[in-house]
Design a binder for these strands. Sequence first.
DNA 1: GTGGTCTAGACCACG
DNA 2: GTGGTCTAGACCACG
Lengths: 119, 119, 119, 119
Amino acid sequence: MQTSRPIYLQIADTLCDDILQARYKADERIPSVRELAAQQQVNTNTVMRTFETLERDGIIFNRRGMGYYVSDDAVERITSLRRDHFFDGGEMAWFFSRLRDLGITPDGLCALYNDYLSQ
Amino acid sequence: MQTSRPIYLQIADTLCDDILQARYKADERIPSVRELAAQQQVNTNTVMRTFETLERDGIIFNRRGMGYYVSDDAVERITSLRRDHFFDGGEMAWFFSRLRDLGITPDGLCALYNDYLSQ
Amino acid sequence: MQTSRPIYLQIADTLCDDILQARYKADERIPSVRELAAQQQVNTNTVMRTFETLERDGIIFNRRGMGYYVSDDAVERITSLRRDHFFDGGEMAWFFSRLRDLGITPDGLCALYNDYLSQ
Amino acid sequence: MQTSRPIYLQIADTLCDDILQARYKADERIPSVRELAAQQQVNTNTVMRTFETLERDGIIFNRRGMGYYVSDDAVERITSLRRDHFFDGGEMAWFFSRLRDLGITPDGLCALYNDYLSQ
DNA sequence: GTGGTCTAGACCACG
DNA sequence: GTGGTCTAGACCACG
């Protein structure tokens, strides 16, 4: 039952990560719905929903008959959205409460994060 | 779009928090299905799903005709489940990747966490 | 959730077994509701339901103010009830279908039963 | 009084029998919640409980948006679960004690089982 | 189309 | 009193 993060959002996350890491640059075309669906082994409807979401957030835009392209300010928008989610959306508070319950100290957290960054 | 955490799991979270903070102690009875349903303003079926979930995880157990009670090792089980979720379930990695993308440094994170703890 | 055999029937089973094995003989008094409840660590209501059931089946009878006694024909009644349940109530068919699905042969079954009897 | 086996478990039993008899094969889709509910004349919630139970036991799994499918090792799991129930869960001992009390001999049992198998 | 959540309520066995 | 099962139905996210 436990329904995990929806597939279409997982794909959106991946695309955003790709954009942040400049694998897709501003005004560059991203793969078509069909390509992504084939590559990710999902229904085309699922990818369409991903694109809808990203377009609504101004991260990608459509050139009729040509496909979807990365917005000029995609990086800023992604960062901004994530920042909002993180700070105001309660994600951070939730994480901190988990960390506290697990008995993790600030120093311990710092160490874990350093480990992560140096991977 | 963002589908929120189901009510029955939110109630489970709350009960677990209560147990962690010793508001309900080992072998102590928790409120009945009806009581919780009334208190939380939800249907009894919803609370039943909560109890099913917690029982399956060994956090509470049933005494027939008497209600549900906190398991002896409830605290350990909750902590363990959450720890697993956090470390192995990918929550921490996801958290750290967000932090990195937002340009937060280990020291910055440490400061934020300290703030949170001192609230 | 999985609700096992009701406690009051488990107690009835035990009493019937006791009668079959002559630990309680015809016209002999069985323990009081309170005694049994204390001994089995259950609610007196539960034992009362056990007695109701056994009385309805003619296995025990009440002497006012004195308690419950084993019927003269208790052994016959128990055996008859169990036989009916077993053969006509579908228990045997169910048992055999499980055995068949588990790939147990008549000889295998015979051997298992012999083992059980010689314990 | 004798509370019958819950409908959702009866449906689970039926599905397991179907799988054991290869009416549904590994990785094959089973009917949707709605289909089964209509066919069995029960509420969709009841079928959902069936699926929950079978999924928790690893007998079926969900492909999101597509329905439930038979696990690769469903047959092994069903057999194993039933075997455990039968031998360790005390079913067999219970049956044997009934047989003994009814005065059935190993040879008699063997004959009855042979009759059953040859039906 | 699929399943997942939830309500409002009933009924009942059990303790 | 307790929880467990079930119905009838709604709503919705997801694929």
